[in-house]
Design a binder for these strands. Structure first.
Lengths: 340, 340
DNA sequence: ATGCAAAATGCAAGCCCTTACATTTCTGTG
DNA sequence: CACAGAAATGTAAGGGCTTGCATTTTGCAT
């Protein structure tokens, strides 16, 4: 870690190029404010010293970091990894760098991470879902750090968001399922803590039940954590506790695939004996056998749009426009009419 | 973006707590250098003003950012997402924040990203694979930014790395495959540009062929980009061009799963007609039908170890010790003895 | 009480850049 | 060829924090 030859500073470049530090700074930040000959001198010096500006100093002097933070539950979940990749690609295009933190779906960690990224000088934040303590929203306001909510869309909330309506999407899927004659429904849900999306999906199913003259309270719920194995366990649990179930909704494809696996292991035929429906439409859903019927979520699109909106917000102050994207139903092989 | 009430500074806290800025600073950074009563006063003031230190200023004064950069090909690939998650968890535990950039497997972008993250003040860098231009390594040295190579392990190189020996792992798998009587082998590889892992896996197969008295030149190679669909296309290509093939190695599970899918579509039975072998052991491999035989790579473990090593390096100057992890063979249902 | 080392605190000099403002150098025109 | 105005460059003042060193306070043995 020994700093043998100290890293060159703007001053060193200025001296080498025989100009003032201001000129060097301008040359680097606003090249066309500088004569070509001067620019060449400076760039030569920069190269010769292999100078690279000191980030902290720059951040301090300009009060901007060109860094945007993203706080997601976990990258292990393909839907976030996917969206995040698109987000970062977009940011990169706009000259921003991405700072990432994850929460493992824990509210306390999320709060800590938000503070940490703000402390790090993030110019803006990407957040997943609306639900979090008012304190945090207040903190962000005080710190003057704009935050954009994604993976959810709800116009009733004051904050702009870019995402889709989880409740509506699930309602539509549930409506189709009920149309196929299913009356005994179950829902293997992700944990609903700090996860308003999971809750919204449940409400969507219940909406459809009510609209179809079923009793929403009859929806058999199992709540579990993320994971294939968890889906398997939950599946078995559902069939034990509510053997009359003919259609099982899953909060995400990973749980769905887990359910599917256990069905095979238990000799339960899908979709003949029971239908299974996922959510997200990740690769796994298509590869599963039989291929999983699910709700397609435009993860990449969300990431991209969010990146664009945030970059523009920070750069020009363009305020964020809420965008509702569409989730679509993907019918594959795990859903069939109920047996007469 | 209007700064209504300017953010509180260290000075403000100092004034409020009736102490000097130095004391506040110490109170925040080295709490035990300060009397309890003073500490309480200060912390109260911090809370009251909801003060949060200015990152740039801190970075500038301390010459450290507590930020570590990770540059990976893409988060869309579950193996990197997984490893990165573990990496970031570990960093977080040590008080570091992670800066992420991705390269889409392009050398020029990688170079740009490395420079960008160094410019951002990353205290250290996580890199994937050894292969990159000497200029970059020189640059890192000049800038005094330590870099750790992961996802690969090769003691012949001067740089420490934490990972596994791709060549050896693939050789072992290939040996087993050949033992089962397979003589006509093919390899659907990921692009080998800026991807020494892919190359190493190829060499591993060839090693095994040579050791088994086969001609390594007989390995039928198809090189393609990452993606299920690409795996499908490549599979068809292999069977068209080399119909006598009985075992197809794939550079990763995603390609393997794609191959599997096309096999089913084409009516080619796996493993009866042809065996398919993946690499990585991601969820997809287990879920695929039939379940994919593959090489299990300890992605999380790599991420965790790398995070630990880098955090300690930056914090205490503990030099990095190269660590070779084991990849293991996972035999599932896509590999069988060759038909007599 | 007194004196002294150790612990706590304060002072002030940077750290490296950006940018408002001042100054110098060009440019084109009369 | 002089001159106004534009363009290019220079000057210097911060920006918020850490830290070496100086100073004050504390705790304890005498």
């Amino acid at each position: 870690m020994a700093k043998d030859q100290p890293t060159p500073t703007l001053q060193d470049v200025a001296t080498a190029a025989e100009v003032s530090t201001a000129t060097v700074s301008r040359c680097l930040n606003f090249p066309d404010q500088v004569t070509e000959s001067t620019r060449n001198k400076v760039l030569k010096a920069v190269k010769a010293l292999s100078y690279s500006p000191h980030f902290g100093a720059r951040a301090m002097a300009s009060r901007r970091t060109n860094t945007i933070g993203a706080i997601i539950p976990t990258m292990e979940n393909a839907i976030f990894a996917r969206g995040l990749q698109a987000f970062q690609d977009e940011l990169h295009e706009h000259g921003f760098t991405m700072l990432v933190a994850s929460t493992s779906y824990r509210a306390d960690i999320e709060e800590e991470q938000i503070r940490a990224l703000v402390g790090r000088g993030a110019d803006a934040l990407l957040l997943i879902g609306h639900e979090r303590s008012p304190d945090i929203y207040r903190f962000l306001e005080t710190q003057n750090v704009p935050a954009l909510v994604t993976w959810a869309f709800d116009t009733r909330l004051p904050r702009p968001s870019i995402g889709f309506d989880n409740r509506k999407a699930m309602r539509e899927m549930a409506l189709r399922v009920i149309e196929l004659g299913h009356r005994n429904l179950a829902f293997i849900s992700a944990r609903t803590t700090l996860n308003d999306r999971a809750k919204a999906r449940q409400l969507g199913i219940e909406d459809a039940m009510v609209a179809s003259n079923l009793v929403s309270g009859d929806l058999y719920m199992v709540e579990t954590v993320y994971g294939i194995e968890q889906g398997s366990i939950a599946f078995e649990q559902v069939l034990k506790a509510a053997p009359q179930t003919t259609a099982i909704f899953c909060g995400n494809d990973v749980l769905g695939v887990g359910a599917l696996r256990r069905a095979r292991e238990m000799g339960v035929r899908v979709p003949e004996d029971v239908s299974i429906i996922g959510f997200d439409d990740i690769d796994l859903a298509e590869i599963a056998y039989p291929a999983l019927t699910t709700v397609h979520v435009p993860h990449r699109e969300m990431g991209r749009r969010a990146g664009k909106a945030l970059a523009e917000l920070v750069t020009n102050g363009t305020s964020i426009e809420a965008i509702e994207l569409d989730a679509s139903l993907v019918f594959r092989d795990t859903l069939a009419p109920v047996k007469n």
